[in-house]
Simulated scan of single mutants.
Amino acid sequence: MIEIKHLSKSFQMKDGAVQALKDINLTIPDGSIYGIIGMSGAGKSTLVRCINLLERPTEGSVVIDGTAMETLSPAALRQRRREITMIFQQFNLLMQRSCLKNICFPMELAGVKKAEAEQRARELLQTVGLPDKAEAYPAQLSGGQKQRIAIARALATNPKVLLCDEATSALDPNTTQSILTLIRDINRKLGITVVVITHQMSVVEAICDRVAILDKGVVVEEGSVKEIFANPKTAAARRLVAPNGGAAARDLASFAPDDHVVRVTFNGSSTEKPLVASLAAETGILVSVLSADTRDLSGQCYGSMLLRLPRDVDQARKAFDYISRQPGVTVEEVTGL
């Protein structure tokens, strides 16, 4: 659906050019939910605005459904943007219009007849779970309801691509989860390709199929969400996947000389058999969890854990051997054994 080829973007400032994006190359599969994640200033919002040419790339090409967007005439580009809609962090609803009229607005611009537009808008209100808010105004809605109306408006022109620019950053955790569930349901039911721009790894792990990690305008890592969680290769990826990773890599000087400490990495082990509990139940060996940063992705565990094994060498080796035999788990000595 979307191919980004050697895309770069520079902004001319008073004291010279600032390069926001550098040689970006990405392929976003048709019908997928694709995450683009990075810290503030990484270039995420610039990249998403280049996808629909709200920002024109300085170099490179954006190809959507076989068409190089930068080659289109202004009229053809406006027409094409109806297939590439966007939702934002601050909703961007028209405050003087009712919810129904907000959803009708892009159809008005496209020349859709009023009766047809209103019928479509009411169908979309049903889709986003707010059929009773047709005559309400944005000021009367909660943040989550506003975002649902914004999603309905984005769907009004039957788009092929939905761009989500930090769409849940202004919402509380429960509302965020409900909006992510709605986006996933829309993706599955309508087959729309979704591009999620975020700085929150929790958003990526909740709904995305693949993810690209952006750092200082460069894609430093790209792959399936499970691959990135299991084995982040760059410092930028590790900061996002395990923001508290410093605790897991605590100073070795803090351990006693006879401590036996191991780092356990979960590369997709089953969550049905908790490691520490099964170790105790099956061998009678108790270990201490010094730090942990793990996640459950579709019933599989990813992340790492720092364990202190018993000081008795035989018991420690028995525990080490037990852990190393578990599927989807790797274990390495930190100190002691």
Rank of each mutant, 00 (worst) to 15 (best):
Q89H: 00
N25R: 00
T283A: 12
Q126R: 05
D312C: 09
Q12I: 09
V194D: 04
L94A: 12
A117S: 13
I64C: 07
I2K: 03
D296T: 04
F266Y: 15
Q140N: 11
K216Y: 07
L307Y: 11
L125G: 00
A281V: 12
V218L: 07
V161F: 02
Q19G: 04
G144C: 06
I213Y: 02
G35E: 04
G268Y: 04
D215E: 14
S224G: 15
A42P: 02
S202L: 11
G217E: 00
T294F: 05
I36E: 07
T271S: 08
L337S: 04
K189Q: 15
E118K: 10
A292N: 13
I183W: 08
G66I: 05
T181R: 15
G223E: 06
T157E: 00
F88L: 08
N231D: 13
A319I: 00
Q326M: 06
Y322G: 10
R82M: 15
A139I: 10
A236Q: 08
A292L: 10
P274A: 04
V220T: 11
G245N: 10
L47N: 07
A117G: 07
V18D: 06
K233Q: 14
A212C: 09
V112F: 11
L275R: 00
I179H: 13
L279K: 03
R238T: 12
E282N: 14
S10V: 00
K216H: 01
A248P: 02
M201C: 14
A121L: 06
N158S: 14
L190G: 05
A316D: 03
V276N: 04
F229N: 12
D132A: 08
Y322F: 15
V18S: 14
K160V: 08
F88R: 03
P310E: 03
A76K: 08
V264N: 02
V196M: 15
A280H: 10
